[in-house]
Design a protein around this nucleic acid. Structure first.
Lengths: 206, 206
DNA sequence: GTGCTTTCGCTACGGGTCGTAGCGTAATGC
DNA sequence: GCATTACGCTACGACCCGTAGCGAAAGCAC
């Protein structure tokens, strides 16, 4: 999943530790110098590998940063706080906390911008970040339906569209609040946002 | 508002037509080569001016692209379709149409990414794009309150927070849908989104 | 008109990054 | 041992950056 360029089956195997070192170095470089001034030569020095080694594993800066950032979002967990509203607030707060970290802010938006002109990169982001985290929406909704807090979907297509909409609204609002409005997505804001979102979902099924 | 570097009062005045030519050339370059491969030398050639002229007016690539993209959003209008839901749908569809244009997609996200590490650039984006377009939310809400579709705010602080939340939700959702999920924000999607948003706002005042 | 000031187009430059090629060496499978 | 691949290192041409310096042009004050 990480290395875009696959390793061969024969010959000397790749150093597995180098992958982790490179991704960690990439995140550190994002923190210290940001996306635009991040150079692959610098990352290689930080990771303690040769620049050519880096190019053997990743096609370029875009792919490398996507992988480095994607790992950050794997820490997201769906808490069980007893109610859908509280569960969502918990996830959104975690999401906001990740987006507050400079390596996530600088890297994520930059690769999304690059992806507007790169179909393969867009698919890479979708697969390794977006689709990967939709598990949270699915699990949260299923639990809420068990509790009777949300009505069941009429059909599968309806359900899929609903998940997509919720994901776009949650991720979009938090990202916009954090990166564009440049205001913190703190507990007060998350509480207000969650209330509006849930009221809307409950009142407008489908 | 456009040229970051102010002109002097005496001496030969700047060619006013050059500003428009440079901004148009910037947008055209965003369409053809995208943000990352956009060079100021290329923009200067496209605009028919010397590279040094460009540097006399803008501090760099970031500031230039912000100005070039900001103009795109000035075309937004609040239509009067008779109901708040219809009005919002109209604005959101216009917003989605702008974001569907490659010069807006590529440029906007890139400068937002750069702004995560540049306070002045962040303020520039806020002033020339975000705050500038909040007029739409304000006008839409005022009209809805006249119609009785939305309750009045309790106080000014409440009202301001509400506008910020609405703006983050609308802009965030459309941007995320268009650029990250890479799905079109068509009429069907906008209709569903608007329904959820308005139901939420009506049910969860303040 | 005559100066003063600033803009403009042009050329040239050092500095930095890119992505690749080439080499000798190290590590694994057969 | 042999083939194959990964690794570290060096070097390279290509490109873009941002600035300096120049002569010419276009306004303003007088």
């Amino acid at each position: 999943m990480q290395s875009r360029i696959p390793a061969s089956r024969t010959g000397r195997p790749r150093d597995a530790a180098a992958d982790a070192a490179i991704l960690a170095a990439t995140r550190q470089a994002l923190i210290e110098v940001g996306w635009s001034k991040l150079t692959l030569g610098d990352v290689a020095v930080r990771a303690g590998v040769a620049k050519t080694t880096l190019y053997r594993r990743w096609a370029g800066k875009n792919e490398l940063v996507v992988d480095a950032v994607a790992e950050l979002f794997d820490a997201l967990r769906l808490p069980d706080r007893g109610s859908l509203a509280a569960d969502i607030e918990g996830v959104v707060l975690q999401f906001a906390a990740i987006l507050a970290r400079p390596e996530a802010r600088s890297g994520l938006m930059a690769v999304v911008a690059e992806a507007t002109r790169d179909e393969a990169l867009r698919e890479r982001i979708r697969a390794s970040i977006v689709e990967r985290q939709k598990r949270l929406v699915l699990a949260g909704r299923a639990r809420a339906q068990e509790r009777g807090e949300l009505p069941p979907e009429r059909d599968a297509g309806e359900a899929a569209r609903s998940v997509d909409l919720i994901f776009d609204m949650v991720a979009g609002a938090v990202v916009h609040r954090t990166l564009v409005s440049a205001e913190p997505a703190d507990e007060e804001w998350v509480h207000g946002f969650t209330r509006v979102l849930l009221s809307g979902l409950a009142a407008a099924p489908g």
